[in-house]
Simulated scan of single mutants.
Amino acid sequence: MRNLLEKLLDGKITLDQCETLLKAQNIQELGDNIKLDLKRKDRTGFPEAIFAENKSDEDIILIINSHIEKNDDNLIITRLDSNRFDLIKDEISSKDKDFKLIFNKKARILIVKLRQVENKDFKVGIITAGTSDIPVGEEAKVIIEESGHKTITSYDIGVAGIHRLFPQISKMIEEDVKVLIVCAGMEGALPSVVAGLVDIPVIGVPTSVGYGVGEGGIAALYSMLQSCAPGIAVVNIDNGFGAGVFALSIVNNL
């Protein structure tokens, strides 16, 4: 940092160049394999999120404790099972800072809460076709609400009982939602139906709910990618997190 500031004072780099280089240095290395991005929110508008799968409990504890000590922003840990949370929660500590651990069992997300999130103006609607799709919808919900926006959810209103859908869509439009996230497995038809009823962005999330040719969510993914309703954006299978962040990129630029 001192070297960069000296170059700025000497006129060897511009103010904008100095700012860019300082941001690039805001990555903390923890051991040989972990690099913690301390200023992700400054660049992207969304705080650091850690994918827990394939990381050891020791790595997750190290990441969380280091973040608490060196950052004042909240931290998101995704795809963390409840049994793993029970194993690590007592190892998360700080001598100098107050924080809360908020765990959503359905979404498998842990929020390390260092500060309260500022409430914002926009609403995002989240719809799931069946109850088996709810964990993916909940993942998106946590991500959106952690950024200060509100969500309106309606679960288990798939095309098998399509009469359930229309009142819920009407309610969400009345509430002035700006984006709709629609999660569906099996044949994945629900996002196409919803997109044919509304004039706002629709994000389709295929889920791994299904059997036979639909097993693993492939049939739902293919269906959404070739929807007859134009303008649907589609994220990867079970990617509620990605859908939530994409919705935020829309509402944060309104």
Rank of each mutant, 00 (worst) to 15 (best):
D10I: 01
A160H: 09
A140S: 12
V124A: 03
F46V: 08
R115K: 14
Y155I: 10
K113S: 14
K120E: 06
D32N: 08
I232E: 06
D72M: 05
V202A: 06
I13A: 04
K105E: 15
Q17L: 00
I27S: 03
N54F: 08
L30S: 08
L225Q: 04
Y222I: 15
I60S: 01
I68Q: 04
Q116N: 15
E48D: 06
I152N: 02
I34C: 07
S147P: 02
K95G: 00
K70S: 14
I181Q: 13
A107R: 09
E19C: 05
I27V: 14
D238V: 09
S249H: 15
A233R: 08
N65V: 11
I68D: 03
F246L: 15
D57Y: 07
V159R: 06
I50Y: 04
I92Q: 14
I88E: 07
G185F: 12
E118R: 14
R164W: 05
D10Y: 01
R115P: 00
A49P: 00
K23M: 15
G196M: 10
S82Y: 15
D156K: 06
G231P: 01
M224K: 09
L248I: 08
T207M: 06
N33Q: 13
P191H: 13
T14H: 02
K123W: 04
L8Y: 05
S82D: 14
K141F: 05
R115W: 03
V251Y: 02
K70W: 09
D42I: 03
D72C: 03
L9P: 00
S192H: 07
A229E: 00
N236T: 10
E146L: 05
Y222Q: 06
V198A: 05
I232D: 05
R40L: 10
D238F: 08
I27F: 02
F122C: 08
E91M: 14
S249M: 13
T151N: 05
M1G: 01
K95Q: 07
L254M: 14
H149M: 02
D42A: 03
E69A: 09
N239T: 12
G31P: 07
N239W: 08
E138T: 10
T128W: 09
C18T: 07
I237V: 15
A243R: 12
E215H: 13
T153N: 09
P47T: 15
K105P: 05
S154F: 11
T128C: 10
G196K: 15
E48R: 11
E215W: 13
N3Y: 02
N119G: 04
G242Q: 08
G148N: 11
K106L: 15
N119L: 13
V177H: 02
M172A: 08
I134M: 07
N71H: 10
D176W: 08
R79P: 02
T44I: 14
L4P: 02
G125C: 11
I203H: 07
A247S: 12
D90T: 15
F166W: 12
S154I: 11
N236Q: 04
S56H: 05
S56P: 01
D98V: 14
G158T: 11
D81C: 04
V198M: 08
L9N: 06
I61M: 01
K106S: 15
L75T: 14
L225E: 02
